[in-house]
Structure formats: structure tokens, C-alpha cells
Design a protein around this nucleic acid. Sequence first.
DNA 1: AATAAATGATAGTATTACTATCTCATTTAA
DNA 2: TTAAATGAGATAGTAATACTATCATTTATT
Lengths: 211, 211
Amino acid sequence: MELQLQIKMNEKLFVRNPEQTELGRKIIQFSIHLIHENGFEAFTFKKLAEVIGSTEAGIYRYFENKHRLLIYLTAWYWSWLEFRVTFHLNNIFDPSVKLKKLIKLLAANVVDDDSTIYVNESILHQIIIAEGSKTYLTKHVSDDNKDRLFKPYKDLCSLIAGIIKEYNPDYTHPRSLASTIIEMAHLQVFFMHHLPSLTDFGDDKDEQVAV
Amino acid sequence: MELQLQIKMNEKLFVRNPEQTELGRKIIQFSIHLIHENGFEAFTFKKLAEVIGSTEAGIYRYFENKHRLLIYLTAWYWSWLEFRVTFHLNNIFDPSVKLKKLIKLLAANVVDDDSTIYVNESILHQIIIAEGSKTYLTKHVSDDNKDRLFKPYKDLCSLIAGIIKEYNPDYTHPRSLASTIIEMAHLQVFFMHHLPSLTDFGDDKDEQVAV
DNA sequence: AATAAATGATAGTATTACTATCTCATTTAA
DNA sequence: TTAAATGAGATAGTAATACTATCATTTATT
């Protein structure tokens, strides 16, 4: 069975839909690699253009600026993750089993998913860890939020909060706990790799974040 | 009783010690205001120079670049917070009381502390919430870490991890829990103000983050 | 009073983050 | 089949950013 996974993206995230043209798909594919290699700060449209054999102006036809591109990638990732979570939790009814599976999914190393050709999910996952929070840590969060740019993130958070509520209907802070779980599943991995004294998880290839 | 609180800062954080000259103290004082007003991305040494009536080159004599200045401010904040925590937990021996007091200290609104004239702790606290994680979310974290630039953060984390261990010596992840508490005490406040659906805390003037 | 440190003034550079315009090839639609 | 629309390359230009360098002047220290 060969399926092609297509995620419907918010139109405000781009100027022209990158999924519909060759250049657009190259922008997605290679921006992921470039951001991962040099970090978001050092990433420029000019460098990206050189890598994909196009021009700076060409990339601006697809994305308003590099921050929007980062939000696009991040939104894509959260949508993809939500689908993954929904898929894996399907037909499981015990909330405690659900929660355990969920945390495994969030904390596990992501393997590249072949059903999306130009997105390398494994690398994208690492970008989210290192750069994800920069999408909302800006002076224009509220404007971006009004444009619903963070909806995929919020949807995932809601999904998790719902499972927490199922597990314990009396728990008073399911959404805060959900966002904490998501953020920490990522941040603890970052600490493990770069600031190990801030975590108890070892930077071991085989070791997974404990559940 | 009038005390002057002086925090000994790591020499690698600056080119010339800003606490020892008038211009240096102005840099600290007004960079806090500027970063808070326009965000770290929009903050430049040129704008800062204009505000304090000096020149761009003048500020470069104190800080290598704006990122180092942000790390300086952040390091200062964590040191100040560690002192505050140590002070408030002095002579308390029940670990559960300690933990509760600690979380109150981390989550409470910070009021400006008069024992430091040129640092407005209340505003600095808001900067840490919105910009703090940008200090380590870079490609050069490991180098910065080798220069011990994050020591104040790690020290605070250790202190909290120690209290957690006192409370429950069998707990296997005290450092991860400590960093989670610190990060979330800040991030949930950010969400409360800007992305309220990611939290259960309301953006109410009187309401404090629950303990 | 002599000397060193701190600051101010000015200039210059490479890079970044865009915007604009014009051409040309390819699709698509009438 | 031809005209129009679309996608993309090429080139140019601008304001701002992130610095570095030099030199003169003011202020502090001995």
C-alpha cells in the first residue's frame, strides 16, 4: 500500500503554496537541511537560493520571510505529529495506556517517514527541538496567533489535554500539563545533548527518554 | 538597613565589566528597557547608544555582541534568583514546605528590588520569560557552556534538584524535574499572556499561578 | 602635573533582509 | 492555435545590521 500524506496548511503561512511547484518543494526540502546545519539565525534566503540553484527573489515569492518559513515548518510538524498520535492511539480505550503511548511517541527518536518525499521528519524533529519555540517567542505572537498560525500546536495540545481529562476528570490543569509535556519532551532532549547537567537523561544512542 | 547587592559575574560574559563605570551601568539599565519594549530581535547597539547618548562603538567596548549581553542579563537574573531562593528558604527544614515556597518564588510576579539600583528586576523577569531560552538555543551552546556562561542557571537547577532529593531520595529524575519547574514557571506565564489556550491559568491581574 | 583609562566622533565594510523590474519558457484556457 | 497566465531566472538597488578601526578629547588616578 503506497499512500501520500498531504497536510492542509493554513494559507496565511505562505505567499504561494510551496507544495504545488517544484521550486516550492525544494524550498521546504532544503530549508530543513540548512536550518538544521547552521541554525536558524545563520539561515538566509540567499544561502538557500544558492543551494537549490534559484535566486533570493524566487524564494520571497513563496515565503514572506524566514520567520514565516520556520512557522510553516513547525506547523507542518505539529500537524504531522497530531496525525501520528491519533493514528497510534486509535482503538485504544484505556486512558492510562493512551497516555503512556503518547509520551513514547513524543519522546522517541523520529525516523524519516517515506510517505512524505520532500520532508525529512527526523531532521525536522531536531529543528523543532532547537528552534521551535522561536516561532512564538516574538513581539508579534498575538498577531500571528490571530492569523491562526499556531493552530496545529494548539490542536495537539487539546488532544493531549483531552486524554489527561479522560484519565482523571478532576484534574484542574490539563492544558498546562499538556503543553508542559510537549515542551519538555523536546527541551529535555536538547539539554541531554548540550547542557547535560540540566537533565537526568544520558546522551546515549540506545537510551531512550524514560517513560 | 541599607544594603547593596553585588553579584559577581563571570568575566567571559563581558569585554569590560559594565558594573564599574557609569556607561556600563547605563548599558545594563537601558538595554533591559529596550529589549523589553521591542524584543531581542529588534534590539540593536545603535538604538541603545542613541537612548543613552553614547555611540555604537562605545557599547562594543563592553559587550562583544548583543547575544552576549542577553546572556549577561540572564546570568545575572539566575544568580539573583538563586540568592533570593536561598535567602527565603533559610532556616526552613521541612522539604515539602521548602518546595512549596520555592515554587511560589519562581511563579510569583517579581517586584523591583531596590537593593540594585540600575537593574529593574520586574522587567528583567519579563525578559527572561520572553527571551531567556534564546540564550542557549544556538549553534554555539556547547562553546558558551564551556565558558561556563550558563553556570548560574545550572546552579539554581542543582539547588532545586537537591530539595527534590531531600523530599524524596528515591526520585530518579530530580534534575529534569528541576529544569522543568524553572522553564514551566516561565513558559506558562508567557502562554497565559499570549497563547491562553495552551494553559489553564487566566490572564488576571490578581490571579497568581496556582501552587 | 603626568599618565593612563574611558569615552566620543567619525568612517568604513560585509552581510542581511528585503523590493522592484524585466525577460523568457511553459502551461492552460478560449 | 493563439493569447493569457503562471513559474522562474537575472539583475539591480536600498536601508539596516553587525561589526572594526582610528583618533581626538575628557576624566580619573598616582
